[in-house]
C-alpha cells in the first residue's frame, strides 16, 4: 500500500517527503499546493515518480532532491523545477513554458518537441536530446547541456537554441555523438569544441559564430554558470561552432506529383 503524503507548509513554502509515495498521489498533492498559492514546493526522497510538474498553471518553484522519474515536466506550462540529482528520460517532453535545472545528468530525448521554456543540465544527456524542438513567435525553447550528448542530438530540430558545452571532455577529446542535427530544418546548435564532419547529419551546415550568436551564447552560458557555479568567462574562452540547417525544406524535392 502506497504511503499517503502530507505537506508541511510554511509561508508559501511546502515540504513533502516523497518516500514511497505513489506518483499520482504525489502529483495530486503538488497540483493542490500549487493551486493553493504555494510559491515553492520542496520534495525530498523523490525516487522515480513520473510527470512531476505536469498540468500546473503557475510559476511555482519545485525543488527536487532525489531522482525524479520519466517525463519530468511533460507538457509543462510555467513551473520552475530544480533537480538535485539526475533526471530520467523524456524530461521536458512537449514543454511549453517554464524552466528545468538539473544538477546532474539527464536521460534520453530531453526536451523532445519542446516549444518553449529552458532546460539546463550540468552534466551529460542521453540520445536524441532536443528531438523536434520547435519555436513559434515569442516561444523559443532553450537547452543548455554542460557535458556531452549521445547520437541524434537535435534530430528533426525545427527551432530553438541548443547549446552543448562538453565541459567534462578531456582536452582534445571530441564529442562522441553521431547524426547530430539529422533532419534539422530550423533553430541553431552552438557546440563547444569540434566535431568531425561525419558526425553531423547531412542537413547540417557549420559556421563561425557572428556577434549576434555570441551575444545569445554569452547570456545562456552566464545563466548556466550562475546555476552551477561555473566560470562563465573560462567556458566562453574556447572555440565554439555554430550548426545550422542547410535547408529549410530538407524534403522538398522528394516527390513526383
Amino acid at each position: 500500500m502506497a504511503k499517503k503524503v502530507t505537506a508541511q507548509t510554511d509561508n508559501h513554502v511546502a515540504r513533502l517527503d516523497a518516500t514511497g509515495v505513489y506518483y499520482r498521489d504525489l502529483n495530486a498533492q503538488i497540483k493542490k499546493l500549487a493551486a493553493d498559492s504555494a510559491h515553492r514546493i520542496e520534495l525530498s526522497n523523490v525516487c522515480g515518480q513520473r510527470y512531476i510538474g505536469t498540468d500546473i498553471e503557475s510559476t511555482v518553484e519545485i525543488d527536487i532532491t532525489g531522482t525524479p522519474g520519466n517525463d519530468l515536466g511533460a507538457f509543462m506550462n510555467g513551473p520552475r523545477i530544480i533537480v538535485h540529482g539526475n533526471a530520467q528520460d523524456c524530461c521536458g517532453n512537449t514543454m511549453n513554458e517554464g524552466e528545468i535545472i538539473i544538477h546532474g545528468h539527464a536521460g534520453d530525448i530531453m526536451g523532445m518537441a519542446a516549444r518553449g521554456g529552458k532546460i539546463f543540465v550540468r552534466d551529460d544527456v542521453g540520445y536524441r536530446a532536443g528531438n523536434h524542438m520547435k519555436e513559434y513567435k515569442e516561444k523559443k525553447p532553450v537547452l543548455v547541456i554542460g557535458g556531452t550528448a549521445q547520437d541524434f542530438l537535435g534530430e528533426y530540430m525545427a527551432g530553438g537554441v541548443l547549446v552543448l558545452l562538453g565541459l567534462d571532455l578531456e582536452p582534445g577529446e571530441n564529442h562522441k555523438a553521431n547524426f547530430i542535427g539529422t533532419g534539422m530544418h530550423g533553430g541553431v546548435i552552438y557546440l563547444r569544441g569540434t566535431v568531425e564532419d561525419y558526425q553531423l547529419g547531412k542537413e547540417v551546415g557549420t559556421a563561425e559564430l557572428d556577434d549576434k550568436d555570441k551575444a545569445i551564447l554569452k547570456e545562456l552560458v552566464n545563466q548556466f554558470s550562475s546555476y552551477f557555479g561555473k566560470d562563465s568567462a573560462k567556458i566562453l574562452n574556447h572555440k565554439f561552432i555554430k550548426l545550422y540547417p542547410r535547408y529549410l525544406r530538407p524534403y522538398g524535392r522528394l516527390y513526383a506529383y
Binding site: R115, K134, Y136, G186, P250, Y251
Partner: peptide, 10 residues
Amino acid sequence: RMIPKGTDAL
C-alpha cells in the same frame, strides 16, 4: 500548429 508560417511541418 504553432510553427512559423511557410515552414514545412514534418
